[in-house]
């Protein structure tokens, strides 16, 4: 299914510009936009005001550019084309085909791995903090810890976040809920000579209280949620202060919930 999407793109006409763009260094986060998508005017609504030399840029992206421009102008158009490609990209990746392509890249870890140690190198997804261009650079979302991180490579740090948009990663998991990773409630516990540090431990207990409240809130929607550690039979790696209470909550939740939520594994 996903392979189909990839292989059927522009079989006859080699997409020179897009091919070059996607494969050039620093653009590893982008996927290739289908020709059909780019040529459908509806998909480009509103972009003509956002991108200078819009028509030339579009021609360049779709490989029909034949203007005899001087170097200066050509550079301008080239810049516009990259900008246009990015903005269309943000729209494209939330379509069925786009999602499938990005999912493929996600599975290949093309966007890198979560730097958080407890996430054990979970693959990341690119995102922007704004849908408007020139607001902030691209960030990486970890679906496991549900937090966002800066790309570690400086060549990615300059990509505009709007080329991926704020919604993409959420939509991806709405469309493929089975891929939502199991969350972990493990955490780093700072210690000094083996003893837990009180300030950190007190905060951890307070946060654990909220985590248990989550079960109750979800029970109101007839939902249950299990962290990895809870679905495992024994939990000897980490012991929690509120463990007995947590276990009790689970039991109650199991009673009240009509159907177990399918976590997708």
């Amino acid at each position: 299914m996903m392979e189909d999407f990839n292989s059927e793109t522009d079989s006859d006409y080699t997409s020179y510009w897009r091919d070059w763009f996607v494969s050039s260094r620093g653009n590893e986060y982008f996927c290739e936009i289908d020709e059909d998508y780019l040529t459908d005017r509806f998909n480009l609504t509103g972009l003509n005001t956002e991108v200078p030399y819009y028509q030339y840029a579009l021609d360049l992206v779709t490989d029909v550019f034949d203007l005899d421009a001087d170097d200066d102008l050509r550079e301008q158009i080239e810049k516009s084309a990259r900008h246009l490609y990015g903005l269309v990209h943000a729209r494209y990746i939330v379509t069925t085909r786009g999602l499938a392509k990005m999912l493929d890249k996600y599975k290949k870890c093309d966007f890198g791995k979560c730097p958080r140690v407890i996430c054990e190198g979970h693959p990341l997804l690119p995102m922007g903090q704004s849908d408007l261009p020139n607001m902030s650079t691209v960030k990486l979302y970890c679906p496991k810890c549900e937090d966002i991180y800066n790309p570690k490579s400086s060549r990615h740090a300059s990509i505009d976040g709007a080329y991926f948009g704020t919604s993409f990663h959420s939509i991806l998991f709405q469309v493929y809920p089975a891929l939502n990773p199991e969350k972990s409630m493990r955490r780093y516990e700072p210690r000094i000579y083996g003893f837990k540090v009180h300030a950190a431990a007190a905060l951890a207990r307070w946060q654990d209280g909220w985590r248990e409240d989550l079960h109750w809130r979800l029970a109101e929607f007839d939902m249950t949620h299990k962290f990895i550690e809870e679905s495992e039979s024994e939990d000897d790696a980490f012991d929690y202060v509120e463990e007995p209470e947590g276990a009790k909550v689970d039991k109650v939740v199991a009673e009240t919930a009509s159907g177990r939520m399918d976590l997708g594994n």
Partner: peptide, 9 residues
């Protein structure tokens, strides 16, 4: 189903 689960952290 895929809503936030890790805010407590």
């Amino acid at each position: 189903r895929v809503g936030p689960r890790m805010r407590w952290l």
